[in-house]
């Protein structure tokens, strides 16, 4: 009975949603024109950053990104608080089967390559698609591979906390440097180079590298907490 009531409600909701969204022309410019044009032109001419999405995430809406990274940090902390156990309860990671020698050798070969790909993605965040969030996630995936393969592979929790805190503090310090030297938080204080150069865009490249380290440390922490859970 409940199922049919829910289906009826969803049918009404879907009918109105489709009607509303079919009124919006697909493939036509319909957001406020000024915002997009200002972002595109100042990203190309003032900041000299090729990837406009990076310019928006790190510079124009950089305060949002700071808040977002804080939310991720809070969720990692909350997870380790919720899954808290007394010290003597923590056993080995529960893996059903030990990995075969092919998987051990293969993951040892793949791990540096995956890490290198992640570093490439977040160093070139302002030139090509990618950036700190994507690169950090790719590095966390490499660590996940090692944690699943080797039963006694462990990541130092202290080191993760250090990497994470130093990256966060440097982010805020660069933002405050912009505030005191140019007048607003996260304003660019370094010289901007040429478009499509590696050292272009001033502080944007540096901040995205910091975000990459921070996101990688937080995601590795989340995975590590989850994997040490024993049912």
């Amino acid at each position: 009975m409940k199922k049919y009531i829910v289906l009826g409600l969803l049918a009404v909701l879907g009918y109105y949603l489709m009607n509303v969204f079919l009124l919006i022309d697909f493939g036509m410019p319909h957001f406020a024109q000024g915002v997009k044009d200002v972002y595109l032109s100042s990203s190309e001419n003032v900041l000299q950053v090729s990837n406009v999405v990076t310019a928006i995430v790190v510079n124009f809406r950089g305060f949002d990104t700071l808040g977002e990274v804080t939310v991720l940090f809070l969720s990692a902390t909350a997870m380790s608080g919720i899954l808290y156990k007394k010290r003597h309860d923590i056993g080995d990671r529960s893996i059903l089967f030990p990995a075969s020698s092919i998987i051990r050798a293969g993951s040892k070969m793949l791990f540096p390559t995956i890490t290198l790909l992640g570093v490439y993605v977040f160093v070139h965040g302002h030139l090509s698609p990618g950036g700190g969030f994507q690169g950090g996630t790719i590095i966390a995936t490499g660590f996940l591979l090692m944690l699943l393969t080797y039963q006694n592979y462990s990541v130092s929790h202290n080191r993760l906390v250090w990497v994470e805190s130093i990256a966060g503090i440097l982010f805020v310090v660069i933002g405050l440097a912009g505030y005191f030297m140019k007048g607003s938080f996260l304003e660019n204080v370094l010289p901007v180079g040429q478009l499509n150069d590696l050292f272009s865009g001033g502080v944007i490249g540096i901040i995205y590298v910091l975000v990459g380290f921070k996101v990688a440390a937080e995601l590795i922490g989340i995975i590590y907490t989850m994997l040490h859970e024993k049912g």
Binding site: P29, F31, V35, K36, Y39, L40, V52, V53, I56, V57, R61, D64, T65, E68, V71, L72, L74, S75, A76, A78, M79, I82, L83, F133, V215, I222, T225, M226
Partner: peptide, 25 residues
């Protein structure tokens, strides 16, 4: 338009954090 892309980029990462906390609960 690059603005919705930047917003969705943020939303995906936040969504992962929300899912992780919900699953630990």
């Amino acid at each position: 338009d690059p603005i919705p892309q930047a917003l969705v980029l943020t939303a995906i990462v936040i969504g992962f954090g929300v899912t992780a906390v919900a699953l630990s609960l």
